[in-house]
Design a protein around this nucleic acid. Structure first.
Lengths: 172, 172
DNA sequence: ATCAAATAGTTCGATATCAAATTATCTTAT
DNA sequence: ATAAGATAATTTGATATCGAACTATTTGAT
């Protein structure tokens, strides 16, 4: 009777089908299966999506997408004047080196990073933040942490520790 | 002295820089900031990545990518013979309708779904699983749940409930 | 010393995504 | 009844990604 799973609130459509609905559908279609892992993995995915959206919103304030933002912050946290090679950057952020070439091209055009040739190995490059890049990274990391803190605001310190501990066990 | 944060184990490079290292770098570079939200959000992202990799690995066993897999399972859980329009599918999985057109093209070429014209509204389409699509979805959902269950194996029932509750609070 | 193999970065070809424009059809206001 | 606007799906154009091929160097084996 109350199986009007077609009803869709605006809130739901903004984030896809409700997890509750999905679970009920599977219980009906495949009563031989236990769909409960979907509830946990679905909650994980939704939470990650919410955080990602918030983080990308912050990056956009600096005119960056998530990709460029990651590069800038990875370089910034190495320390002033420190460099990484394109390969190291790709490794740190689980990206192909060809995608990294593309990201670096864009950041270089915007004057946020520069490619320096390595005198020790002429195949290699040192990627460094420019002054502008350093400044922008320093500004964005502050608001980035504020945005993340806001996402975590409903959790107290103990809950955050619990969450970290439990997340570390997923797929361990 | 012991700031040899350049050391990189093979295990780390497979999943990017170690979270611990990242936190230490920020403490050194920006002692004015509290980087602890990064630890939680980073753990969230890593856990989600591990689950996504496992889930895509399962989809690949059916010759599908994550995209096609999602479409197939979304249709399957509606029930045998049930249909959704391309717009509804796009809405359920937070995707543009143009991306959905593309996904449906591929699945149709493989004979897993079919587009039926809607006699009630000739602008609209009903997307239905073929017999092959239904069979494949039924096979894949079983191994999909097994793969998710394996990712959650280190967590007991109470921990899974805790994790769901905590994840729901993130960004709430 | 020399040449084969490994490595760093880029380029190329294919694919997936999105937003905007397009086509066809339906709904609504008059 | 009809025209204006809304809606469904697709096409188009731009961009980002990956894996493979490519170029330039360096390393290592003999």
């Amino acid at each position: 009777m109350s199986q009007d799973s077609r009803a869709k609130s605006p809130a739901e459509s903004a984030q896809g089908a409700a997890l509750e609905t999905i679970l009920q559908q599977w219980k009906r279609e495949r009563p031989d299966l236990d769909p409960s892992p979907m509830a946990v993995c679905g909650a994980l995915r939704r939470a990650n999506d919410r955080v990602r959206t918030a983080v990308e919103g912050n990056a956009a304030k600096g005119g960056l997408d998530g990709a460029g933002f990651d590069v800038l912050l990875t370089l910034r946290r190495q320390g002033r004047g420190q460099t990484l090679t394109p390969s190291e950057l790709a490794g740190e952020m689980m990206l192909s080196t060809s995608a990294m070439t593309n990201r670096l091209d864009r950041l270089e055009k915007r004057g946020l990073i520069e490619r320096r040739s390595d005198p020790k190995d002429r195949r290699s490059l040192k990627i460094a933040l420019t002054e502008d890049g350093f400044t922008l990274a320093d500004r964005l990391v502050t608001s980035h942490l504020a945005a993340e803190e806001q996402m975590l605001a409903p959790l107290d310190t103990a809950e955050r520790e619990d969450l970290k501990r439990l997340l570390a066990k997923v797929g361990a």
